[in-house]
Design a protein around this nucleic acid. Structure first.
Lengths: 233, 233
DNA sequence: CCAAAAGTGTTTCAGCTACACCCATGA
DNA sequence: TCATGGGTGTAGCTGAAACACTTTTGG
C-alpha cells in the first residue's frame, strides 16, 4: 500500500488536416504523436502525455496538449483510466488517465511544429508504444459516437462554417455519405447551430450561408459532471 | 513529480432491495455505504473503496465490493477518475478511480451483513463524505442510460425471470411506466433474452414464461475495450 | 447557357405508442 | 364467474431516408 503507483495523463488529440492544401482532397482525421527516444519502446510513436503535476487532471491533459501542439482544445473529455500492473515492460507501475480532445482545423494550420512530434492519419497508424493502438481505437469509437449523437463536430472547424463543411466533418468521422437535404434539416432541428448574416462565396455555385455554434445549448450530455472537482477513497 | 499521489478505487454498487419482503411493494434501487469512524468526514457515509493494491483496477473494485457485501458483481464497469488537488480536507492528494456495479437481487438476500455497512435508497441519500453525492448522481445517470439503451437490466435480477420482472426493473430504474405489450416486443426483438420452457405460477392469473439472459449477444457496446490490460504514460 | 452546389418539397417506410382484445389461472 | 396479469393484434403518429426539384452563383 505504501508502494503508490505513478500517475500519468495522456491525451488523444484529433484534428482534420489537409496533407496538401492546394489539392481539393478532403482533409484527414489525424492525431499528433511523440517519437520516443528511450526505452521502453525506443523508436516508436506514442501518445502525448506525462506525469501528473500539482494540477487538475484536466489541466494536465491541457498542458500536454499545449506542449505537443501549442494549441488549446475546442473540446476535452476524460476517456478511460488504464492501470493494470505489469503493463510497462520495465516493471514500473503507472496508472494512466487518458483524455481525448478536438482542436480546430484553422488553429492546426498555424501551430508551430515541434521536435519529435508528427501528425499521423488516425485510421492508418503504425504499431505504437505500449497499448496506444488500443487506446486510439477506443478514442475513435467515442468520437464517432459523440459526433453522431452529440453536438461536437463544430469543434473540428473554425469559428464559422457552412453546412457543407459541417456535413463533411460528419462524413469523414462517421465514414459514410450523408444526404445534404436531410443533414440540413437535422442540424437545424436540434438547434446546435445558428445562422449568421454572412455568406461564403467563391465557388462556381450559389453562395452558402455561414453558421456559428449555438452557445445556448449544451455541447453534449455529460451527465451530472460539469467540472468535477472533489472526491476521495 | 516525485510527489506521486495515492491511487484509490471506489465502487458504486446498485441492487434492488425489498425493505419489507412480506409487503407487495416494489423493490427499491439501493447501494451499500460505509460509515466513517475517523477524519476526514468522521460520522458520514461514504462509498466502499480503498487504496489500490498489486492488482488490476477492476480487481480492486471487485475486492472492495466483496469486502463490503460479500458478493460478486453481475456487471462491473469503470466510470470516471477523480483526481483534483485539494479535494481531501486533510491535504493529501488522492486520485480515485470509480467503478459502478450491479448485483443480483437474489444474491443480496443472503449476503452477510457487515459492520458499519448499510444499504440506502439511491434516490434519497443523506449528505455523504467527500463529493460522493455527485459521484452517485453520475453513476445513476449512467445506469439509466445503459438500462435504456443497453442490455444490462437482467443483472439486477436472478438467473431466470419473467418479462414482468424485467419490465419492473426498467420501470424502477428509468422512473416511468412502460407498456407491457410494447416492452415485450422490444425485448424479444433485440434478442437480449431467450425463453426457457419453464413457467412461473402462483399468482391468480395465467402463468408467465421464464426467460434467461442470452449469452450469445454482447451485454452492451463497450467499444474496443474488452478487458483493458496494458497502457502507459 | 452550363455546371455545381445551395436549399426546399414530398413520398415512402419503419418503428414506436396507445389501446383494444383474448387467454389462463387462483380464489 | 370474476379479477388479474399474460400475451397478441392493430391503427395511427412521427421521424428518417430517398430523391425530385428550384435557386443562385462562376465560368
Amino acid at each position: 500500500m505504501g508502494e503508490s503507483p505513478e500517475v500519468a495523463v495522456s491525451t488523444v488529440i484529433f484534428a482534420l488536416r489537409n496533407e496538401d492544401p492546394r489539392s481539393a482532397e478532403p482533409p484527414t482525421l489525424s492525431l499528433p504523436l511523440v517519437f520516443r527516444t528511450r526505452e521502453p519502446f525506443d523508436g516508436r510513436w506514442a501518445l502525448p502525455g506525462g506525469p501528473l503535476g500539482d494540477e487538475t487532471l484536466q489541466d494536465a491533459a491541457r498542458r500536454t496538449l499545449a506542449a505537443t501542439t501549442g494549441l488549446e482544445p475546442a473540446y476535452l473529455e476524460q476517456m478511460y483510466t488504464f492501470g493494470d500492473p505489469g503493463r510497462s515492460p520495465d516493471g514500473r507501475r503507472v496508472v494512466s488517465v487518458v483524455y481525448w480532445a478536438l482542436v480546430r482545423a484553422d488553429e492546426v494550420a498555424h501551430a508551430r511544429p515541434q521536435q519529435n512530434v508528427r501528425w499521423l492519419a488516425a485510421d492508418d497508424l503504425p504499431t505504437l508504444a505500449f497499448d496506444h493502438n488500443l487506446v486510439v481505437e477506443y478514442a475513435l469509437w467515442r468520437l464517432r459516437n459523440k459526433v453522431s449523437y452529440g453536438r461536437i463536430a463544430h469543434a473540428l472547424l473554425g469559428e464559422t462554417f457552412t453546412l457543407r463543411e459541417l456535413r463533411e466533418v460528419h462524413e469523414i468521422v462517421r465514414q459514410k455519405r450523408l444526404d445534404p437535404a436531410n443533414f440540413r434539416r437535422q442540424v437545424e432541428a436540434d438547434g446546435a447551430v445558428v445562422p449568421t448574416s454572412e455568406m461564403r462565396t467563391g465557388g462556381a455555385h450559389r453562395p452558402a450561408r455561414l453558421y456559428r455554434y449555438n452557445t445556448e445549448v449544451e455541447p453534449v450530455d455529460l451527465g451530472p459532471i460539469a467540472q468535477p472537482t472533489r472526491s476521495d477513497t
